[in-house]
Design a protein around this nucleic acid. Structure first.
Lengths: 108, 108
DNA sequence: TTTGTTGTTCGTAAAATTACGAATATAATT
DNA sequence: AATTATATTCGTAATTTTACGAACAACAAA
């Protein structure tokens, strides 16, 4: 059990941010958001990288909980994990809506 | 000039996400948000890592445009770059508020 | 001029990330 | 049983990230 150095919300937010920290993965999320059919092949076609790399990015998004996959032999269908997507949205919203200190001479 | 493989908004969002993709950097942003005085020493005390590492994380946040620094000899004061913070908030808000496809049988 | 305070930079090591082609796995089809 | 279509995993290389202590830089104070 690795001792957490930071609070759990901080860890979770950082881990979501990290998962989104590559343009290919952002592009995948945007693509999945607007697609009815989200087969691997469709995603792969959309991206300017090799399919092995696409698969790797999908795996990372899945491990972060942002997407899920489902086999429809011989294809694999991916989609956004709506529950965790909502959770991520909330984490980022809380983060970006936190009140900033009002010190006007702060790095003017 | 490196050819961009993805659209500029995707690149920008990914780059912001990447900058936030480490718990130490999230912790720094949260700390800066609530502090009146944001000297390096204060930030350093708050984090469970060596000062050289803190300095490195601050540099990354600065390069991402999320914070700025100002020398007040012999100290260095950091704070959130409010303009870019606002821009980042907007990028993430747009991303998380995009309409998801309504396909109910998508990975049920 | 020496000393002290504060942070950054350097050098370096270990680990993680990104990328690709080749090989593999799965299961339907011929 | 061999073939086909689809996607993952493997092996590997190049790069980036994370982390630390030591050395350094800047400047005020003694």
């Amino acid at each position: 059990m690795p001792e957490k150095k930071y609070c759990i919300k901080t860890e979770n937010l950082a881990s979501m941010a990290k998962a989104l920290g590559h343009p290919a993965r952002i592009a995948i999320m945007k693509f999945l958001a607007k697609q009815e059919t989200c087969y691997f092949g469709d995603i792969n076609e959309e991206l300017p990288i090799a399919k092995a790399t696409v698969s790797q990015h999908l795996k990372e998004l899945k491990e972060a909980g942002l997407i899920q996959g489902e086999i429809e032999t011989p294809k694999v269908k991916y989609c956004i994990n709506k529950e965790n997507w909502e959770y991520a949205r909330q984490l980022f919203a809380d983060f970006f809506n936190m009140e900033l200190c009002k010190n006007d001479d702060c790095c003017k």
